[in-house]
Design a binder for these strands. Sequence first.
DNA 1: CAGAGAATGTAACATTTGTTACAAATTACA
DNA 2: TGTAATTTGTAACAAATGTTACATTCTCTG
Lengths: 223, 223
Amino acid sequence: MKFPILNRSPLFSGLTESEIETVIESVNYRSRFYHAGAVAVVAGEEISSVMIVLSGSVRGEMTDLTGKTIKIEDVHPPQALAAAFIYGREARYPVNVIANSDAELLIIGKAEFLTLMNNDRRLLLNYLTAVCTRALFLSDRLRFLSFRTIREKYAHYISSLPGAISGRVVINRTQQELADYFGVTRPSLARAVSEMESDGLISVDRRKVRILDIMRLSTLSET
Amino acid sequence: MKFPILNRSPLFSGLTESEIETVIESVNYRSRFYHAGAVAVVAGEEISSVMIVLSGSVRGEMTDLTGKTIKIEDVHPPQALAAAFIYGREARYPVNVIANSDAELLIIGKAEFLTLMNNDRRLLLNYLTAVCTRALFLSDRLRFLSFRTIREKYAHYISSLPGAISGRVVINRTQQELADYFGVTRPSLARAVSEMESDGLISVDRRKVRILDIMRLSTLSET
DNA sequence: CAGAGAATGTAACATTTGTTACAAATTACA
DNA sequence: TGTAATTTGTAACAAATGTTACATTCTCTG
C-alpha cells in the first residue's frame, strides 16, 4: 500500500487498506515533500485542497504585521490541515503552515475529495463526523469563554457533570487543565472555588465537589 | 409545492422547487406541529434527525438545575436546528427547543438525510458549506475570546482588517457590536481604545483607525 | 434643517482577575 | 518506603474590566 499511514486516519476509518488505495488512486492526488522549515501554506491562502500529513510534522503559525510569529499547534500524521474549514464559504487558511521536519503531504483537490465522498458513504460519514464533532467542540469551548466570571464558568461546569443532580460530582481534570479550559489562570480559579466554598455554595475536597446550595449556584449561570 | 419555504433554505439552494419536492418525497420525512410553548426537543437528547423549521418559530433555551431558563436564540424558517452538530460523535442537543408560536418542523432521519446528500452532490456541498462555515465562525470567535486583554483583541482585530498593511483601517461595526464580538462591555472597549491612542499606538476617529506604532501594537498579540 | 435617536467619549468607583511567590498535600515511581 | 515531581491551597499586590451615569457627537428622517 502506498500510504499505510492513512489506515489510522479517521477520515478513512472503516475502509480496508486496499479500499483506501483504490479510493486514492481513483482521483488526481499528488503528494509533496517539504524540507524542514519550508512553508507549505501561507495564511490567508484560499483552501483549495484537502492536505493530509503523511510523514514528518508541520506546525500552524501566525504572523503579525511586524513578522513576529506565534506557534499555534503541531499537526502530525495522519491529520489533515484545517479539515473542518475546507468547504466553508471563501475558506482561507487561518495560519501559515511550516514543516517542522522533512514532511510529506497528500494533496487532493476539494472537488475531487467531494467526489470521493459522494462515491463512498463511509468516507462521507467519516468526514461529516469529523467536522460536526469539531463544531461541537468549538461551541462547547465558546460557551465557557462566554461566561463573564470564573464562578459562573465553574458553576456551569459542575452542573453539567454526571452526578450534579445528586449533588456530588467529581472533576476529572487537574485544576490547571480546568483553568486552561476556562481561559483563566490557576490561582484565580482556585481562589474563586475557595470563595464559593466559604460562601456555602459548595464543599470541595480536591476534585470532589458537593453542591450545597443549588439555588444560589444557579443564579450564577444567568446571562 | 408542499414546503415552499425550503426554496429559501441554504441547504436546498441551487435546486428548483420541483427538485426539492422530488428529493423530499424520496425519503421518509415527517412534519410535526407544535403548539406555542410546546417542547420540541429536550436538551441532552440525542440528535437523530435533521429538523427544519417550516413555519412559526422556536427558541433554544437552557435550563439550570433549579429549573430556571435562559433563552439562547430564536430559530426561524427555514433554518435547521443544530445543523452543524448533527453528525457529531454522540451529538446531543445542547438546549431545550420550545415553540415560540404554533410551529411546524420538518423531520428527516439523519441516515436518510445522508442518503439524500449521497444522491445529490448539490445537497452535499450545501450542507458541507454550512457546517464548515459554522466551524470557521466559531473558530474565529474563539480566537478573540482567547486573548486576555481588550487591547490584544483590538490590536489583533484591526491588524486583520484590509488596509492594515497600509496603516489605515475602517471598522465596519458599531462599538457595541465590536464589544459584543469581543465579549466585553462597551465602555471598557472605549477606554482601552482611548488608552491605546494616548499611548501613541493608534490614532482614532470614530470608526477610522490609523496604525501608528506597528511594533508595539503587535507585541500585544503575543501569547 | 431641526429634533430625536443612536453611537461614542469619558469618569469614578467596585469587582474581578492576573501575577508572583511560597507552603502544603498528594501522587508517581525508583 | 522514601524522594522527587506534581498538584493544590493561599496570600498580597497590581492590573484589567465591569458598572453606572452622563455629556457629546453623529446620523437619520420628517
